[in-house]
Design a protein around this nucleic acid. Structure first.
Lengths: 117, 117
DNA sequence: GCAATTGGTAAGTGCTAACTTACCGATGGG
DNA sequence: CCCATCGGTAAGTTAGCACTTACCAATTGC
């Protein structure tokens, strides 16, 4: 039970705009639930529920701090997401090579620097 | 006015399981709408609607082929997604360095090879 | 020990969107 | 020319989920 860290869960979790904002806030460092809710247009319980989804997707982790609870980003979920995206990218490129048409080929072929890897 | 290619749109588009399946099928090469629907548990009009969302997110492109219409993956949307993910990754690592705690360091010493960049 | 702060949970509501069937325009073959 | 195939759109239904308020457990300070 607990952290599955599948790419599907990460996609579903980040598929919600509010959840992306919560995650974005955490990228600045660990925050308490109240601090997050204060900067968002939703209530604190709503933030709690979003944090649970993010936690199940292994995108965040929590730590008790006195009476509060500090949440922070966790690379695990992002890693799963990145791996899936890399596969998508490779498959897309090979499929793209067959089709060889982007409908938007202004300058010469071979754009997308990709990343070194 | 169509292709925006924002990361938010890509996340929203791939936030749906069925849409991920459609996109996954297209990674194998260009397919017609009917071919896609035949391999999924949803109707053909449903596939059409999903394809429209994917197209607006710049994740796929379409091409007329006689009476049919062939869809194929388009790297543009994936690129936006990858760039956003890279930023997420960097921010996560710096925030992670401050917290310096994963709560889940079981057997794997030294995980996440990251990528060379 | 008591009060105050913090956060998770329960219960309920409304809106979005994912799906259906029905219909229609467009293309191609005989 | 007519008919068959393919796919997008319209209209309507339904299920899920993002949100709310209310309540409760846990921890800390006085």
């Amino acid at each position: 039970m607990g952290s599955a860290a599948t790419a599907d869960e990460a996609f579903d979790a980040l598929g919600d705009p509010t959840r992306r904002q919560v995650f974005r806030l955490l990228r600045g460092g660990e925050r308490s639930v109240g601090e997050i809710a204060a900067q968002l247009p939703v209530s604190r319980p709503a933030v709690s529920q979003h944090l649970r989804v993010l936690k199940e997707a292994a995108l965040v982790s929590d730590r008790p701090d006195g009476v509060r609870r500090l949440y922070s980003v966790r690379p695990t979920g992002l890693e799963a997401l990145r791996a899936e995206l890399e596969t998508m990218w490779d498959d897309a490129l090979s499929a793209f090579a067959v089709a060889a048409d982007d409908e938007d080929p202004p300058r010469g072929r071979d754009h997308h620097p990709h990343h070194g890897r």
